[in-house]
Simulated assay, not measured.
Amino acid sequence: MLTIIRERLVGFEPRSLPETSPKASVLIALTDHDDPHVVLTKRSATLSSHSGEIAFPGGKYDDTDTDLLFTALREAEEEIGLAPEHVDVIGQLGQVRSKHGLQVTPWVGVIPSDIEFTANPAELDEIFTVPLSFFLADNRYATDEIRFKNQSIYVPAWEFNGHIIWGLTAYVLAELLNEGCGANIPMRPRPEHKVRHFTSGS
């Protein structure tokens, strides 16, 4: 599966947003299993922003960062103890905007399947992985209708071992699956999907 993702992302032209807002980056770390796992985190319940939510390792761009890829790798090392030299970066996905106005750039990288993580207790309550095959099956928990700037964006939400994966994280995952794996996950609700309504993304 990783071979397919690599080949498809080489020809993918990611969406760019105007640079009119603060910037951030996240790392979509995929293990080199035959069925790759994606690394996700549960943000600390004590944080003032996005507390308890499921997210990729990542954070805000710092003026000392050389570029947005550096941001993603630096944040991954700070949050989950993933050293940059263990990440084989294979591509970028489209930029998205968070509900707090951050312009977020997702990067896709492959990591060894036997690597061990260390959660930064100041930022995270948990680190876990989910097989891509779970998301490809599209057994979604719900379809979220997210209202942003008077427009509706329909995003799948998944439940995995009690974790609800939704909002910006789910949107980026859906783009990875569609563009990297050819999944054709519909971004509009089907009759069998429960629709939840939100005022903005996560």
Rank of each mutant, 00 (worst) to 15 (best):
G201M: 13
G182R: 13
R43A: 01
V38R: 03
P22A: 01
T31F: 06
A76M: 02
A122P: 00
S202H: 04
Q103A: 14
D67W: 01
V96R: 15
A119Q: 03
E145A: 14
P22V: 02
L17C: 10
M1A: 14
S51G: 09
P112I: 12
G182K: 11
S48H: 05
E159H: 12
N184G: 11
H33K: 12
N139R: 15
L102A: 14
K149Y: 11
P189E: 11
A83G: 04
Y61C: 03
H50A: 13
I115D: 00
F148K: 15
T64Q: 10
F160Y: 15
S98P: 08
T105C: 08
L73N: 09
F148H: 14
T66C: 04
F148D: 14
L27M: 02
R43K: 04
E179K: 15
L173T: 05
D62N: 06
A45Y: 04
A76P: 09
I54H: 12
A174I: 00
G182A: 14
S51Y: 12
G11M: 02
L132S: 03
F148G: 02
T118N: 08
G11S: 09
E85P: 00
I185D: 07
D35L: 01
E79G: 07
T66D: 09
R188I: 13
Q92I: 10
I54R: 03
E78N: 09
I164M: 05
L30S: 04
T143F: 02
G109I: 06
I153Y: 14
L168Y: 07
D34Q: 10
A45Q: 13
L9R: 00
A137Y: 00
N178D: 12
P191S: 13
L176I: 08
L47N: 09
S49Q: 08
P121S: 05
L82R: 05
L124T: 04
A83P: 01
Q103E: 14
L124V: 09
E192C: 04
D125Y: 02
R74A: 09
I54T: 10
D63L: 13
A76C: 10
Y141L: 15
T46L: 03
T169L: 08
F12L: 12
V96M: 10
H163M: 09
F135M: 08
V172Q: 10
Q92H: 07
E13M: 08
H197G: 05
V26W: 02
L82I: 06
D34V: 10
L132G: 10
E77A: 11
V39C: 00
H197N: 13
D63W: 04
D34I: 10
D34M: 04
S51R: 14
T31D: 02
A83W: 06
W166D: 13
T169G: 04
K60Q: 10
L2F: 02
T46N: 04
P22L: 01
T46I: 01
D88K: 12
A119W: 03
M1Y: 08
V87Q: 09
E192H: 14
